[in-house]
């Protein structure tokens, strides 16, 4: 439902649906950014298709034989199966999150994972996704999360469910150069999470893009 605040700004319903951080994400330079060249960049990632796959307990399906867009489902923490279109994150035993910018991903998943063996849930509108990029992004993450981000424990194309200042998040390590992370929080926690992570980034200086 369009809020009073949204009506006042002349926004359409679709604007509100697309962006979970519409009223929170600000563009520009913030914090201690002066005379620094490689400052952190923080952005909102929008229009993702996010689908949860949960294998039923009674199912006898062999996971190794399931391929979605030629990707297999990772069988344990912290691996991420990925190609240019799709990332499949392990979130728990027999539970995965598929993330794609392609809206047909849901149909693709349903083709390979049938209703008798898997619960398929479209979570596209239930997450707020923040991308943080830059050499010091890992320091920002360390400030709020108890997770061990050291390289031997967490490297590129890994993912982890953990918490950030008490907010449950899923962290996807996308790239090593520059260090890039997508961080997924529940949509209703998105504002709090955004303020929490940008507050931690002020010390290093960041650019909202």
């Amino acid at each position: 439902m369009l809020t009073q605040k949204g009506r006042g700004l002349g926004l359409k319903m679709t604007d509100i649906n697309v962006s979970a951080l519409h009223f929170d994400h600000k563009l520009g330079l913030f914090g201690d950014y002066e005379s620094k060249s490689n400052i952190i960049k923080i952005s909102e990632v929008k229009d993702l298709t996010i689908v949860q796959i949960a294998k039923f307990k009674k199912s006898q399906v062999n996971i190794d034989q399931i391929k979605i867009d030629n990707l297999s489902l990772p069988i344990s923490y912290p691996e991420v199966s990925h190609n240019n279109n799709l990332r499949i994150l392990w979130t728990g035993p027999d539970t995965w999150i598929c993330v794609s910018q392609n809206s047909s991903t849901l149909d693709e998943i349903k083709k390979y994972c049938n209703d008798n063996d898997f619960g398929i849930t479209d979570l596209s509108h239930s997450r707020a996704v923040v991308q943080i990029q830059g050499d010091q992004s890992i320091d920002v993450l360390k400030k709020g999360s108890p997770f061990n981000f050291n390289q031997d424990n967490f490297s590129v194309n890994n993912s982890a469910n953990t918490s950030y200042n008490g907010i449950n998040v899923m962290i996807d390590y996308l790239n090593d150069n520059p260090k890039t992370f997508n961080i997924y929080s529940l949509r209703s926690f998105g504002g709090s999470f955004y303020h929490s992570i940008t507050d931690s980034a002020l010390e290093y200086g960041y650019e909202g893009i």
């Binding site: 344990s76 728990g92 108890p146 997770f147």
Partner: peptide, 10 residues
Amino acid sequence: PYCGKRSQNE
């Protein structure tokens, strides 16, 4: 048993 060593906070 599934994720390895993690902080008690989790």
